[in-house]
Simulated scan of single mutants.
Amino acid sequence: MIRRGEVPALVRRGASLVAALALSASSALAGDRALIDFIGFSPDAKYFAFEQFGIQDGSGFAFSEIFVIDLAADKWVPGTPVTVRIEDEEVGLGAARKQSAEGAADVLEKFGITEPVEILALNGDGAAEADFTKLRFGVPGYGLSEPASDQTLRLESFTAKSPLPCRDWFSEAPLGLALILEEGDGERVIHRDKRLPESRGCVFEYRLHSVVQPGWAQDISAAVAIVSVYSGGFEGPDRRFIAVPIGQ
């Protein structure tokens, strides 16, 4: 089933979570862990698209969500996310991804998502002893030369207000996010939550995942930070992703 512009599945299941309060966010059971695919940028680097996909905990249904982000406005473009959830455990993930790609084709074309993504830095899922609160990166040099710049992205979290009854559902306050960019002798805040959007769910942990930019970029003005978001779910924390513009 394809749905455009609706709240992601994690929040739609909120009412059912009340029945699962015994399974707290710190439960030994495992929540679902979405994966990510970077789709691309527009030629003017004003828009960025990515897909998150996986098998939903609790139901076992395959899902796929495609987001197109207006980087200057730091919000989804109209008509996104394009959300597919196949309510049949016998249908695999490939079918959900195919449906979401077909459903998002028009909006991807409208916003000109044609430019490849270059990964500047990445905390892989199997990385040992990774520091998920800091990620050092730079603009790639030529050939085997060192990066042409040196920046560090720092993540901080703090208790934040949410429109969802997170304390009632999980007995914990949800967390907000701040991202600080360190370069040279200074730093600047590139994002700080004032209030959590409903679409993010009840977040109990954030982790820096990666920094990406258009493949042709010569500076970080079009770079985007990808943050893993762990929100309460049926069987423990569920991982989803958000994209935060760095250079805007």
Results as ranks from 00 to 15, higher is better:
22 A>Y: 05
23 L>H: 11
24 S>A: 04
25 A>K: 12
27 S>P: 04
28 A>F: 13
29 L>I: 09
30 A>W: 04
32 D>H: 11
33 R>M: 11
33 R>V: 10
37 D>H: 03
38 F>S: 05
39 I>W: 09
40 G>K: 11
44 D>H: 10
45 A>R: 08
46 K>C: 07
48 F>T: 02
50 F>Q: 09
50 F>H: 12
50 F>S: 02
52 Q>C: 06
52 Q>R: 14
53 F>H: 15
56 Q>F: 06
56 Q>T: 15
59 S>I: 12
62 A>V: 00
63 F>S: 09
65 E>I: 07
67 F>H: 15
68 V>F: 03
70 D>V: 01
70 D>R: 11
72 A>S: 11
73 A>P: 03
77 V>S: 06
78 P>W: 11
78 P>A: 11
80 T>G: 05
82 V>I: 13
82 V>G: 11
83 T>D: 08
84 V>Q: 10
85 R>T: 15
87 E>F: 11
88 D>R: 13
89 E>Y: 02
91 V>W: 00
91 V>G: 10
93 L>P: 10
94 G>L: 11
94 G>Q: 11
95 A>Q: 15
97 R>L: 07
97 R>A: 00
99 Q>V: 12
99 Q>D: 15
100 S>C: 14
102 E>M: 14
103 G>M: 08
105 A>E: 13
106 D>E: 13
107 V>L: 00
108 L>R: 03
108 L>P: 07
113 I>N: 04
114 T>Y: 02
118 E>R: 14
118 E>S: 11
121 A>K: 12
121 A>N: 12
122 L>P: 00
123 N>I: 05
124 G>E: 12
124 G>T: 14
125 D>I: 05
125 D>C: 00
126 G>N: 13
129 E>K: 06
129 E>R: 04
134 K>Q: 12
136 R>I: 05
140 P>M: 01
141 G>E: 04
143 G>T: 11
143 G>E: 10
144 L>V: 07
